[in-house]
Design a protein around this nucleic acid. Structure first.
Lengths: 211, 211
DNA sequence: ACTTAATCCGAGCAAATGCTCAGGTCTACT
DNA sequence: AGTAGACCTGAGCATTTGCTCGGATTAAGT
């Protein structure tokens, strides 16, 4: 495989040029769609530029009109998906806070919202997090973690609940991390022993008990 | 890059031949050492067979005397490390159960043991879990998860504690998963906000409170 | 109509990399 | 000493793949 440099990962993940005309926008969209599809189906090494171009129905030359290299194509495809997840998670937090039966009902609603959002993209996310070497260099990936933290902190303040330990901020961070990790674990890696429903209920129980 | 088949990942991760003579054992050891070193330093794509052979001080031909392909070399190197981690974690569980001040003291000791074991290999593990596509096809990787579960279940029984929810088995699984995930998160991905010590204490607090 | 820029095309180059193979060297055993 | 087999060597093949580049085509502006 041709590597552009000796550096392990390129920091050149940004697109190259903005598509101006509608024709060009359609091209870029087709490329990102194809990339996401191939990535989910064939894994990281299954993504070759020629293959992507063919699947998108455009020529190789067109890819490199808008992206400086292969990594930036994959990064753009993932970034788009991650932005959607962040929006969906924010949305379910908003409705969760408006619910009666706080905090239990809110937590329940939010958990299910997050799981649904991840579940819809489980194959893609699994590959992204397990195989894409520069995944955490994608700004949207870092953002998602931060966003989750912000939402959690905000939720804690609004619901006027505190964990029963020392530092509410650190406790919330940790609890959020743990919940997120548990959800990822079950949604992405599908353990045989534990059903989705059972996980959700237990998780809600735990968090409620700790609040 | 030459891929042996269209299948996403090879199940051909097993070594090919056992080294019989001491000279050969040294060769294999040198190969595994070099592989782990390069993997940790340069990432998955930095591992090339020629490079590994050179770094190990043996010729390419010798690699393929004992391993059928590149993946099996990486798998063997990681398997060796994972076996050590499993042993260390088991060890710290044994001493943890012998401690006074249960369950708090035991949990504290065990947590610290796990973190130390992971910390010693953090770079390698980070690459392994983030980039190696067949990581979870390595039997030792699956085993480690199972081992953790077994140890946790055993610890729960021995300490005669139960979580306060429905099904002790599922609750323990979930709690173990969450703790493990939180530890991995902090050891491997080094969040700036939260110190190692603070995480450990809070984690022990939480688990103690839930028991 | 003319110009300029945006967009698209795709054959093919340059480089990397997994792995083979024909033959050499060392060890164990009779 | 002789032999079988374990072990090692490394030049080079076969293949893959990221990406360039010269030029065609289409759209926008005047």
């Amino acid at each position: 495989m041709l590597r552009p440099s000796r550096q392990p990962y390129p920091h050149d993940l940004a697109p190259k040029k903005h598509p101006a005309q509608p024709r060009a926008k359609a091209t870029v969209r087709a490329v990102l769609d194809a990339t996401a599809r191939i990535l989910a189906r064939d894994g990281y090494d299954g993504v070759t530029t020629n293959h992507v171009a063919e699947a998108a129905g455009v020529s190789i030359g067109s890819l490199y009109e808008y992206f400086p290299n292969k990594q930036s194509i994959i990064a753009a495809a993932l970034a788009r998906e991650l932005r959607q997840i962040a929006d969906e998670v924010k949305g379910s937090m908003r409705t969760a806070l408006a619910l009666p039966d706080q905090p239990r009902g809110g937590i329940d609603h939010w958990m299910r919202g997050m799981m649904a959002s991840l579940d819809r993209r489980s194959r893609l996310l699994r590959v992204a997090m397990r195989e894409v070497p520069f995944f955490w260099d994608i700004p949207e990936a870092r953002n998602l973690s931060e966003t989750l933290q912000h939402i959690a902190q905000e939720g804690r303040r609004k619901s006027e609940r505190v964990l029963h330990f020392d530092d509410p901020e650190a406790d919330t961070y940790l609890l959020m991390t743990m919940c997120w990790a548990a959800i990822l674990q079950t949604v992405l890696y599908r353990p045989a022993h534990l059903s989705r429903e059972r996980l959700t209920r237990t998780l809600v129980d735990m968090v409620t008990k700790l609040l």
